[in-house]
Nucleic acid binder design. Structure first.
Lengths: 250, 250
DNA sequence: CGCAATATTGACCACTCTCAATGAGGGTGG
DNA sequence: CCACCCTCATTGAGAGTGGTCAATATTGCG
């Protein structure tokens, strides 16, 4: 078992990936606890773009933590129309909306080569009965997911297209930055279509906004590649004082 | 202490109100556990329309369960613009988005004469370490809140005004019905302005839609009073197969 | 009884969607 | 290695849903 743990550590330091343990480290779990956590986590093979982590209707068994790559979570309504609920980057947890049911209500699709940790929820729940700070962290993570969704409700309910895209770019920027990447230069793993879908906009609108932002000197866009050239002004567009988003964000 | 419990029971049976214990009853807690739960719940005085349960920035200490009346939860963005995140009816829990922080990120305002139970979260958390099914139920409730918010994301992101209002009315209908009230006749405790705000629509649009629905024979509206005259057709408009919403819904 | 807040209704306008055409990459097979 | 194709992205023109502004009702409350 110890070998197992060391193995994980190697992974951790080598490629910025994560596990639930990592999500919980800030919370004062001691090393023994972290090891116990690591024991229940299944480290999955890398997946390819287009693969599904789970689909609507699949039995719910586990949460997933993204270690590398990115995942989009979406639901389909009665008409078969897709609504993207979030994009998950390394260090973020997903699948929490399935806890209250027996089956997943959403689907999760991998956007690029991605590796995830699978965390069997039953065992996590048992373990958290014995580790108060784990229980506490789980409540916190669930709550953060709520906060994220509520922030999106504000965006979709009140903000014009321009501000929606700015908010989206800033969210990515912050999340990359938190993971030790550049806050101003990154690649989008999702298509324009996906961005539009997520933000409640048509693809064409997204495209036009990218052009406008570029013309306004806010950023340089080349296909999937984004270079933010005026972060302060982008922030000013959003005008926001909220700070949600910490470990589970989309 | 037993007297206390009896006291609560009297309340419960007399006026359809709720407590956390009630939310947890379906889950196989035995009577002793329920009593323990009841012990930590503070039964608050009734509040008047316009009163705040909590405001943005207030220290987070408790969750609240609505026993009678209704509550709107909203956040303010940087511009001071309000976004209503949900309406809570009797039997529903609120405040869960504050768990991950020290302070409330939203405000909760009472829409009419309302009574709530206050549930100190610290104590709830401690108790749930000893009662696995309580822990499990809490996870479930958090998760349902996420599901509700995600359903709203679909509505705000993809649905036209007409369908938004239909969805809203059906949600109220189901929730009243679940509580033993009529599914087709009820009073709106919130203003047109609030409805529009919640649904991402202008007040005027809401007003026009009520008229159209009435002209189309879907319902009869008289100010706050709603009589749904063609529930099946209202359902058809929404076309939905989702069934979320169980204890915490808005 | 009268003022203030809320709701309704109408006219106009704008943001964004839809439709349609063009252009650019990326992968596959010849 | 290039040609082809298919998907994705961009760009333009026109249309429509829903927002804004403004005036008028209605209700509730002091």
């Amino acid at each position: 078992m110890t070998a197992h743990v060391f193995d994980i550590k190697g992974l951790k330091t080598s490629c910025q990936n994560c596990s639930l343990a990592e999500l919980c480290l800030p919370l004062g779990l001691d090393q023994v606890d972290v090891d116990r956590l690591d024991e229940i986590v299944r480290r999955a093979r890398p997946m390819n773009a287009g693969d599904h982590l789970f689909r609507t209707g699949d039995a719910f068994r586990s949460l997933y933590a993204v270690r590398a790559g990115s995942v989009k979570v979406y639901s389909l309504d009665a008409d078969g129309e897709e609504q993207i609920l979030g994009f998950h980057l390394p260090g973020e947890l997903l699948g929490m909306d399935a806890i209250s049911g027996k089956a997943h209500a959403c689907s999760a699709k991998v956007l690029e080569t991605t590796s995830v940790c699978e965390i069997p929820f039953e065992r996590l729940q048992e373990l958290s009965l014995r580790l108060p700070s784990l229980q506490s962290q789980l409540f916190r993570l669930l709550s953060q997911e709520i906060i994220h969704d509520e922030a999106m409700l504000l965006v979709l309910g009140k903000k014009p297209a321009e501000e929606r895209l700015a908010t989206f770019l800033l969210s990515l920027s912050e999340r990359f930055h938190r993971r030790g990447f550049s806050a101003t230069e990154f690649n989008l793993s999702m298509s324009r279509h996906d961005i539009g879908n997520y933000l409640g906009l048509a693809v064409e609108t997204v495209s036009r906004l990218f052009r406008r932002f570029q013309d306004d000197g806010l950023l340089e866009v080349q296909r999937k590649h984004i270079l933010i050239t005026d972060l302060p002004r982008l922030r000013a567009m959003v005008h926001m004082c909220d700070h949600a988003e910490q470990g589970t964000a989309h």
